[in-house]
């Protein structure tokens, strides 16, 4: 994978940063990470269910309950057409909730955890360098 190391002008990509799996598994044991994971997944599932499920329900209602959808709200504007416009309102509300959720719940925690990953990476690298320097002694200790 080293052939890609010059590939991106942006930040280092996941491949070449190459932190050991051990570093991330220590992150995944953090309580903050666990609660972030749960709340994020719950939000994602709910929001998707409301947005996509709501739309599919609207399609089904239009096909199989036309009498309801054809009820006039005012003039030519029927419940069906109003619900169609309502989909756009619903979407903007969900986008707004999503941005709030990410800003207040996710980003601060993720920032902390990222620092932790970096910390583990550097200490891991230092430890590896140290162990490389002191490899023979290390073996002595182990046998002892």
């Amino acid at each position: 994978m080293s052939r890609h190391s010059m590939g991106l002008g942006g930040p280092p990509s996941p491949y070449e940063a190459g932190p050991e799996p051990a570093d991330r598994s220590s992150v995944s044991r953090q309580p903050a990470y666990q609660s972030l994971r749960r709340s994020h997944r719950r939000f994602g599932v709910r929001a998707t269910a409301v947005a996509v499920g709501g739309f599919l329900l609207y399609v089904l209602l239009s096909s199989f309950a036309p009498a309801l959808m054809n009820t006039s709200v005012s003039g030519h504007l029927t419940i069906g057409l109003a619900l169609g416009l309502g989909q756009f309102v619903l979407m903007s509300v969900i986008v707004w909730r999503y941005l709030v959720h990410m800003r207040t719940r996710v980003t601060p925690v993720v920032r902390g955890l990222r620092g932790l990953v970096r910390h583990h990476e550097t200490t891991g690298r230092e430890r590896a360098a140290f162990e490389a320097r002191t490899a023979p002694r290390d073996e002595e200790f182990r046998s002892w």
Binding site: P14, A17, P19, R24, S28, Y33
Partner: peptide
């Protein structure tokens, strides 16, 4: 098991 945990941390936290 570690592959998924590692991957999941990556999806949420990212590395950059």
């Amino acid at each position: 098991k570690e592959t998924y945990e590692d991957f999941e941390v990556r999806t949420l936290v990212g590395v950059d």
